[in-house]
Amino acid sequence: MDRKEEFFNRVAREYRSTIYTVCFMYATDQDEAADLMQEVLIELWQSIDSLAEVRNPRSWIYRLALNVCISQDRRRRRHHTVPLTMDIDPYDEPDPNSQQMELLRRRISRLPMFDRAIVLLWLENMSYDEIATIVGISVKNVSVRLVRIREQLKQMSDN
């Protein structure tokens, strides 16, 4: 294994839960999540050289994963995705944490694509500055969006 492959393996494993969380939020079932995960890994491999020069790898990984999930044309899904190595299925798990996450995912999935990205980054404790840079809008726009998103989520939860 050469140095590039080693670096890719390390990054993919280190950020696996972050990447999976993004895929989980944009997919509707575990197969689709696996499909998106594979696409993110392909993009990661193709861009891995530029990661070495990045100051904030977490932010970079989020941007890459979100870009893949938002841009992926679902009609062109791959059909030979390698299954994920997980003994849980967060979409269909009886434990309370998974069920709450699934509920949250369903509420977030009703938001427009960019708003989904904003709320996800915000839930991951990212600053408004970081969110603005990843999404490509102003900090003020992020804060206004988040107020609206929170209202929408509250309405969904009340209903």
Binding site: N9, Y20, Q38, L84, T85, I88
Partner: peptide
Amino acid sequence: LDKQEIVSDRMLREA
């Protein structure tokens, strides 16, 4: 999720 393997060697190789 951190306790799960999630990405197998095969998945990484395919990527």
